[in-house]
Design a protein around this nucleic acid. Structure first.
Length: 110
DNA sequence: TTAATGACCTATC
DNA sequence: CGATAGGCCATTA
């Protein structure tokens, strides 16, 4: 596993419950805004879903990817709603309202 | 080392 | 609006 994946996982781990972040945002917080696709691939091979809340990562518009590996897009939506995240439509989370903030990164746990 | 692969994003029509 | 086309870049085979 590459170093960048580690950086990405560390960021995803810090997304608080009830909040979401876009792939691009995770990429930027991990160190490079151009890593959006890399974030997608990193989560695709998520080695520790129990501690890496990949369901809190959506597209920049809040849309859920149809390729969610653990139970499908519907499962991801249920998980988010369970945490209090509201949806604009069937596949779009209200990311403008629940987007994670920079201060969330301060939770030092790494 | 080279080529292929995406759970993305932006610009353009 | 939506559809399409490029770009992007770490990782893998």
């Amino acid at each position: 596993m590459g170093e960048v994946f580690e950086l990405i996982y560390n960021v995803v781990k810090k997304i608080p419950k009830g909040r979401v972040a876009s792939y691009g945002q995770v990429a930027a917080l991990a160190g490079n805004p151009k890593w959006a696709r890399v974030v997608g691939y990193a989560l695709h091979v998520n080695p520790d879903p129990e501690h890496i809340p990949c369901h809190r990562v959506v597209t920049k518009d809040g849309r859920i990817s149809s390729a969610f590996a653990f139970g499908g897009a519907n499962e991801q939506k249920l998980l988010l709603e369970k945490e209090g995240v509201t949806f604009i439509d069937e596949q779009t989370a209200d990311i403008n309202r629940y987007r994670m903030s920079l201060i969330d990164l301060d939770k030092r746990q790494g």
